[in-house]
Every structure is written in structure tokens, then in C-alpha cells.
Design a binder for these strands. Sequence first.
DNA 1: ATTATCCGGGG
DNA 2: GTGTACGGATAAT
Length: 805
Amino acid sequence: MTRKTTTLTFFPTDITYHIKDGKAVITLFGRTTDGTQICILDDTFEPYFTVVGGTEEELLALKQDSAHVTRVEKTTRNLNETPTDCFHVFVDLPKSVPLIKDLAREKEYDCYEFDILFTRRYLIDRNLTPLVETIAEAERIPSKNKVETYLAKKITQHRTNTLTKPRALALDIETYNPDNKLNSKQNPILMVGLYGDDFTRVITWKDWPKRSDYVEVCASEADMLKRTVELIEQYAPDMLVGYFTDGFDFPYLSERAKHHKLELPLGLDNSPLEILGRSEKEAKICGIPHIDLFKFVRRVIARSLKTDSYSLDAVSKELLGAQKLPVDMNALFKLWDEPTSELDVFAQYNLQDCKLTYDLFHKLLPTLLAFVRLIHLPPFDINRMAYSMLVEWYLIVLASRQGEIIPRKPGYNTESSRIKDRIQGAFVYEPKPGLYSGIAVFDYRSLYPSIIASHNISRGTVNCSCCTDGPTIETDRGTFRYCQKRKGLFARTISNLILVRADIKKQLKKNKDPFLAAQSEALKVLANSFYGYMGFAPARFYCIECAESTTAWARHYIHQAIDTAKSRGFQVLYSDTDSVFLLLEKKTKEDALKLMEEINEKLPGLMELDYEGYYPSGIFVSVKAGEGGAKKKYALLSETGDLKIKGFETVRRNTSYIAKDCQERVLEIVLKERDTEKAKQYVRSIIDGLRKNTIPLDKLIIRTQLTKDTDKYASVGPHVAVAQRMKARGDSAGAGTIVKYIVVKGKGKIRDKVKLPDEATQDEYDGEYYITNQVIPAVERIFAVLGISEEDLAGTAGQSSLSSW
DNA sequence: ATTATCCGGGG
DNA sequence: GTGTACGGATAAT
């Protein structure tokens, strides 16, 4: 009867539950510190939700079919940060919660927390964090799982070690693709690539001459699928990694398995690979978190990347300095039909994609781990969350552990009406276009987070009834006052984020650990996302008054800095949101620093004005030539000689490198050498080079992204004409393709004068086109500031127009 | 300007 | 599964 209880130390990687004997059993999968994969069951957690109103008897009586209330616990929790009597209503099964909740609602009881998932509720209430070292007192039990299974008596964590070296396996497939068609019902999978620690394999079902030694040939597609499951099981990964595998590889594998009437029992409980969701799919494997790096990159990493495209190729290039193997995708199906040694290139291509994915995973692992540790949810969930959800769940877990009842998600009507709520934005002091010397720049450090923390902004502290005096803030929406006695949820949470980050930054100075660096970054972005979250219509903790007060205080503090500067005789050049640019003129840097100290003395709490830097010269350019109102278009020269350029066009849309290069060089000459004449001569030399066709061809390439397929454009612009040319010669060019072209000499419209970069020759590009449409527009506003007209610039003063050159 | 719609990414 | 979109860019009004 009695079995031996053992102590297991393990890292939980995945969590789920199953029903056994009419009861929900939490199932944790993970790896022990000595490397064994295990499964731990916990049958001591009961599903519940929270009700305000009703009586114990009435709640106990709620029942629909077999769904029923098992017990009711009277308790006190905070509702909108105010202590409130409520009930925890326990039910027989997790899926009974929505049913019983509906019955309770019919009786007009206020229901909460009925949509907090069972496994998440477990992690919150039991204070557990995935991927963190866990100690379980447990006994071994018989099971059909692929791994040793134990029933837990007690599970605890000390939040020390984290699973920083998970055993990862990357997967990628290649498919039969006639006419660029991706159709999992018709076209088979040709190859499955796997890449792990000391493991490389491409599985396929045709042989070809001179194939690489990591290629394994199966008899059929079905055999290849079975072999894939077998190899994954043998490798026993902690995490299965892919790129857009939620949207492509796993759904495709699943569909092909269905086609062959096969199951893909990848789960550690032998359950099949599951494809969830309707429009945005998720591929789930029980016990093995599936990490789709594409989703993580697009939702979390994107804002720190330069690239516009989140393709594996572009992201690998930026983060790893490595790229996909260049192949002609259209050749794959032809080679498959008649295999030659050339087909091996596609196996190499397949494996390279797996390797990039594997390397990318390790590059991004510190960030993923940082969020898992902060938010306390499983890696599978964190991987797929948008910023708003990361903030929301950070709040949910913290608030819940502090006894707060989690607000409901807004209904459709509430959300629609919230969308109409507009918040008055930041203050902008528009600069007068001009060339300036001696600029000091200050900015408020983490302005919005520090305001929220310092002014105790929170949904539960706004216009509290416990203190009627205290500072107020005027906004378009009314005057708001925040409690002086109780610390609010938002303010407490954000203060904590700021303080923990300060501590991590201190540690980072001694130890440049990438995991620490990622934690610091994660804390920063979470803090910076709070303001946006408060005004986000679908947010549970929505608080428009809080958001409105935050920007109002921001405007107040930036005005305060500007007014103090003016009263001390500084000229204010420009200001936007959290920064102030001062023109020093006769004053020194020391005077400016003294001013900063003076401003800082008056600031409350965590708020602080930072000295961003001193710039010997800077130019502010108007958005439209010759007019005022230069918003966010300026260039500064730092003391170390670096140019800081804001708001000028970049080579992304319809701009050539020659235009950008010329613009940068002009800014450099103007700011560093202060030599207008030299800048003018430089532009003239470029114009001359364009006329004489001596500027290298690759500087003239113009890039434009196709927004739709070529046949859907009403008007055929140059980029559409190029796409048509590409198609005519057999290249693919559909929606999303970035087309590259060069404008060449000739008659007619621009679209009749475009060529692909590899078709055009040095002598045939149209210099005049580049002068009028690329180079001049890029620099004319800079010269307008310096009092030089287009005509003067081009050396054509006196002529009637540019076109007469 | 503000509001709808489309699209990514994979072969 | 006690559930679910998202965010950017372009086109349309």
C-alpha cells in the first residue's frame, strides 16, 4: 500500500491538467537536475472563481447537469483596491466554471476570475514559476507516459536556479511547391530537418546522387512522418523550436498525417500534436513547449530590431550575422520529380534553416527566460503574448498574490466605448528652423513610469474617499486626486520594477551576464508599457483617468523645466514629451548642469531630469521647404563627432542610397565644418557625377515594397512595372516582395524607363531623374535653412525651373 | 485627418 | 480550453 516518497529537484517546462476519477489533476513536465525527464502530478488543486454577492446557501445550490458547486469559502479580497467580502466558489471540474458562472450571473451576483485558466491559477496560487528549480516530495506511480511519473505530496520553490540550458531541438520542413502553391492537402512534405546539440538530420523519402551524410531516406512520406516522431522522442528535447512553425510547419505536418490516417503522438503523454485556434494558429505538444520564434520576434523583439521584415533570413542576418542558403525555390519541385545531385542543395538549405533557428533560439533565450521569471507563466504562453498581455499578466499575478480580485475583460460594448476615449498627448515646443551652436539636451528619465510611481497613480487610488485634500491634476477629463494614504497597485508595481532594475543594473556593472542584461531590458520595457496599457481598450485594468493624469503631469513637468530654464536666461530651442533642448549662447555647460540640479530639487519621488548631452552644433529643418514648424526633423553633432539624425528619410521607401548618402554628407559638412559653400559644391559634384554617369550603379537602386499582387494595382507605377518585368522573366513578385529597380534614360513615363539592377548598365541610368527626384528633394530643406535656393544649389540661378537643365 | 482592410511568415 | 489576436501600413471615405 505505502510507496516510497522521494525528493525530486527539477525544472518544470510545461504544465497541463487531465481528468482522473472525476477530478482535475495538474500535470507538470520537466527535467531533473540530473537530466531525467519526468512528470509530476498534483491532485490537490480545486477549480474556483470569485463571487461578490449572494449567500453561501444560494451559491452551493447552483447546478447544471453534472456541473456543480463542491464548496464555498467566505473570504475578504480587494475589489478595485478596496477590501470587500466575497466568496470563492469551488466547482467539480474546470469546465464547470463557465457554466456555474452563468447561473450565478443570472441571479445578478458579481462574478470574477472565471476566465483565469486552471493551470495559470495553479501557478499563481501555489507561487510557482516555470523553468525555476522546484523541489517535489513525491512517489513514483505507474503510468503510460513516455517519462517517469510521480504523484506529488508537496511542491516548493526557492527561486534560485533557472533552466538556462534547456535541451533544444529545431525543426523545419520543405514541401512540394509547384507554381508557388502552398497546399497541405495536395502537396507532400519532402524533407524534415532537425538540428540540436550534436545532432543534425534531414529526413526525406527519395534518394539522389551524392547526398549529404546527414540525410536519411525513408520509403514514403508516411514513413518519414513516423520517423520524425521517433527521432524527436529519442532526442527528448525540453523545447521544440521553429520559425513560423505555429502557422506553417506543424499545421502542415498535422494535415499530412491526417492525409495518411496517421497520428503524430509527440506528446509526453502520447497525445497527438494539436493545432489550436482559428485565424492565428498555435501548435501544441503536451509536455514539450513549442517555441515559435517568429511570434516572439514579431511581438516582443521587433521594436529593438532595425529590420522591417521578420523573415528568418532578415532576422538571422541582423541578430546572428548569418543567412539562409540562397536557392531558387521554384527549382525544388522540378528536382524532386527528377532527382539529381542538385537536390542535395535543398537538404543543405533545410538544415541551414534549422541551424539558424537553433542559434536564434539561444540568442533570444535570455529574453524569453527573463519574461518567464517575471511573469510566472509557462514559456509556451510567454512566447505568444503581445506586450499588452505581458503587462496584463504581470499585473494579474502580482495583484492576485496581493489579494486583489482580477477585473473582468471588457465586453464588446465597453470596449467600443473605450475606443472613443481620447487622451490629450504630450507637449511639443516646435523649434524655429535654423542652424544653431551650443545645444544642451536634458530629458526626464523614464518619465511616464516615474510619474505613475511618484504620484501614486492607480485605478484604486484615483479620487479616493479617504483623503479629500492633497495635490490634484487638471485634465480635459476633469480634476483628479490620488490617495495619500494607501499605495496603489500600479504605483507599487511600477516602483518595484524600477527598483529591481536599478539593482540588476548594479550587478550588471560587475558581471556582463546576458541573462541579467535581458532581465534589465525586460523590466524596462514592462515599465514603459504601463502607460499605454492603462489606456488600452481591451485591458482588464483599464484606467483612462490614470492615463490622462499621466500625460497631464508630464506636460506639467516639461513646462516646469522650460519655465525654470527661461527664468535663468536660457533660450529654449525645442522640446518634445520628455526632453528639452537649450541654446547655451553665452552660458556654459556648468550653468546648464546647475540648472538641472535646481529643477531636480523640486521633483517628487523617483522623478529625475537627466543630462543627455552637449552638442556643439545642430540644425533644425522644416518639414515643408521654406515654412516653419519643424517637428522632429533635426540633426545634432556630438562632442565626439558623431551625427545624430532624427526624422530625415531613410533608405526604405522609394529612396536611393545616393540620396541618403548625399543628405548625410551635407549634414556632416554643415555641422562639422560649418562650410555652406563646401556643402553646395559637394551637391554640385554629385549632380555632375549623375550627369556624367560616374556614380556607381548600386547607389541608384530604388526599393519599394509591393502592397498587393501586380494585377490588383489600378495604376501601374514604376514598382509595379518592375514586378511585371520580374514575373516575365520567371522570378516571383507578389504582395510583400521588395522590388529593386533603376530608372534609365528613355522616353515616356517613369514606368517605361525602369530596369532591374542586373539588367541596367552604368551608362544608361537617367541622371536627371535622380537629380530632380532623389538628390534635390533630400537636401533642399537643409539648404533652405541656410538661405540657399534650389536654383542656386544646382548652379542654375536665373533659369526658370529645374526641368530646364 | 480618420477609418477600414490587408497582411505578415512559411515553400 | 475556466481563452485569444495584433500591430503596422496602406487604401478608402
